[in-house]
Simulated assay, not measured.
Amino acid sequence: MPRITKEPEERRQEILETAIRLFYEKGYEKTSISDIAKEMNVAQGLCYRYFPSKETLFDTAIDQYAQTLADRMASVLNSGDITLKELITRMPTFLDTEKNDNYTYKLCHGPEGRKIHNQLSMAVCAKLLPIVQAQFDLANECGEVHLEDTLTAASFFVYGQLGMLMQTEIPGEERVKRIKKFFNDILFAPKD
């Protein structure tokens, strides 16, 4: 049987996608690097060439998905010359950007999903923090807001909304509405 050679990035992505599918189907704990290699019909060493451990492979897959979600959110945040108030109105949340059409989504929302979803949420927040801080810096420069510490404000806004997003007994649209109202109240409430 002839050896199939693939570009390194293509092979790396294939390993990630196979691993995520198996993590979803079999569970993270019950999936080994050997299982992933067998599923791909490759030598186990090939997987280790790209990922030194199952944990590294998993973390890389979650980070890649986090980047996808952050990019979707950032596309609105970086959409040009609009005010911070308008950005908040248009702002997508985790609820808006996740699509349930792939194995990473299913893994994060499946039976073992709580811990994995929390890891994903933290990764997305870390990627969004500098983008939100830059928006606050710009709003400060334009005089739209007056924030002394944009890093703290951005951290609060990015990570702080997770508490409300996790209130699953409240419908998703209502959670998003409350978050946006709170952001507007904090940033744009009339000063006494």
Rank of each mutant, 00 (worst) to 15 (best):
A189I: 09
T168P: 00
F182L: 14
A43T: 14
L95Q: 14
N184T: 09
R175Y: 00
L95E: 14
L84M: 11
M1Y: 05
E141T: 13
Y103L: 15
P171V: 06
R90L: 14
A70N: 04
T31M: 04
P130M: 04
F51Y: 15
E39L: 02
E17K: 06
R21M: 04
A66V: 11
E173F: 05
K30R: 12
E29G: 06
G160L: 10
K6W: 05
A19Q: 00
N78W: 06
F94Y: 11
A19D: 02
E25G: 04
M73G: 05
N102R: 03
T5V: 15
F188V: 08
L147C: 10
I20M: 07
E14W: 03
E14D: 15
Y103F: 15
F94D: 05
E112D: 12
R90A: 15
I15H: 03
P52G: 12
S121Q: 07
K180P: 06
P52L: 04
K85H: 15
K26R: 10
R175G: 00
E169D: 13
L95M: 12
H146Y: 12
E29I: 05
A37V: 13
D101C: 07
N184G: 15
A66S: 05
I15S: 11
E98M: 09
L120E: 10
F183S: 04
F136C: 07
L147V: 09
E7T: 09
H109F: 14
P92N: 07
Y65D: 03
S75W: 01
R12T: 11
K115I: 10
Q119L: 14
P8F: 13
K106F: 01
F188N: 06
H146T: 15
A153V: 06
Q13V: 03
K30I: 13
K106E: 04
K30C: 00
E25K: 12
N184Q: 13
M91F: 13
T152I: 10
N41H: 14
P190K: 12
Q119T: 14
M40W: 07
Q161H: 02
D71P: 00
F157L: 08
Y103D: 14
G163P: 02
Q167I: 09
K177M: 08
I36R: 00
K181L: 09
G172A: 15
N102T: 05
F182M: 15
F157Y: 11
Y24W: 05
E39Q: 08
E25F: 06
L128D: 09
